[in-house]
Nucleic acid binder design. Structure first.
Length: 287
DNA sequence: ATGCCTGAAGGGTTCAGA
């Protein structure tokens, strides 16, 4: 089973890139963030195309900002929007949707940005993460947490720690909030796979940041222990950040072997849809 | 020029993103 997460930074603007990406990578489950469309608009944009491809959709959006969705062709059950117990901003924000797909609880998240440390937005972010931890802790053993987490787990996850000193995404309280979720038994499967590599998922649009590979790793795929044990591949799809009209985030893609008890049997994508094996050499540079 | 792009809303500009 292949599961992916991608902050698309407006589904409307990403349409020319989205379906080609979906068809090339052929994920069984997709978590989307910053769709920036209402649920009706999401259906207008993609409903027919996704239905043709066998995906069920759980969209949770609003106009203008935020918005998340889960697409699945291995089942989509027990959909829950929002995070129970999390604070609302002035108006409730569409930042979380969860569903059971292929026998696994999938949490698709767009964690609040935080803006400035010690701001109301920052406190909102920390409280939101604390509530999220409780929801995950109460969930089933087979689970994944995916999305734009808006936290760089370590200094290795930003291009220059000095450039981010004192800023959101790297502060100890944010990292502690993430660590509390990991302490539930979750694994950061991309970092596990690429322990010493330069791996980013976000590059600012400005100043040729992507071309220079000056980015951050803030889009994460976390897997509970039984799911982490099934990881066959975990990588950042940099191709999607290249070319014309990309999002500023790249997708993260995780391949899982079949569960040991054999209770799920999603089709394995063909070799052509899988990345070339990279062994332990460095990720390719942009260009 | 801490806003070097991009997107949304709405109106000739602003706010937000990380």
């Amino acid at each position: 089973m292949r599961i992916a997460t991608w902050n698309v930074n407006s589904m409307r603007q990403r349409m020319p890139r989205f379906l080609p990406w979906l068809d090339e990578r052929s994920p069984d489950v997709v978590c989307l963030q910053e769709t920036k469309v209402t649920d009706d608009a999401f259906t207008e944009l993609l409903g027919t195309e996704l239905q043709e491809r066998g995906y069920a959709v759980a969209a949770h959006g609003q106009g203008q900002w935020n918005g998340v969705a889960i697409l699945s062709r291995v089942g989509l059950e027990d959909v829950v929007t929002g995070v129970a117990g999390a604070p609302d901003w002035d108006i409730p924000e569409a930042r979380a949707v969860a569903a059971t797909c292929g026998g696994m609880r999938v949490h698709c998240l767009y964690v609040p940005n935080g803006r400035e440390p010690d701001s109301d937005h920052y406190r909102y972010k920390l409280a939101w993460l604390a509530a999220l931890r409780e929801v995950i802790a109460a969930g089933p053993a087979d689970a994944m947490v995916l999305g734009d987490i808006n936290i760089a787990p370590t200094d290795e996850d930003v291009f220059d720690p000095g450039a981010f000193a004192g800023q959101t995404h790297v502060t100890p309280p944010e990292r502690a909030a993430l660590a509390e979720i990991l302490a539930l038994g979750f694994h950061d499967v991309v970092r596990d796979r690429w322990p010493t590599e330069r791996v980013f998922t976000y590059w600012d649009y400005r100043a040729g940041m992507f071309h220079q590979d000056l980015g951050m790793r803030i889009d994460l795929a976390l897997a509970s222990a039984p799911v982490a044990a099934r990881v066959a591949a975990a990588w950042v799809d940099r191709q999607a950040r290249k070319g014309t009209g990309p999002s500023d985030h790249a997708p993260v893609i995780v391949d899982l072997d079949e569960a040991p008890d054999g209770d799920i049997g999603p089709m394995v994508p063909p070799p052509s849809a899988r990345p070339a094996r990279r062994g332990t050499r460095k990720l390719p540079q942009s260009g």
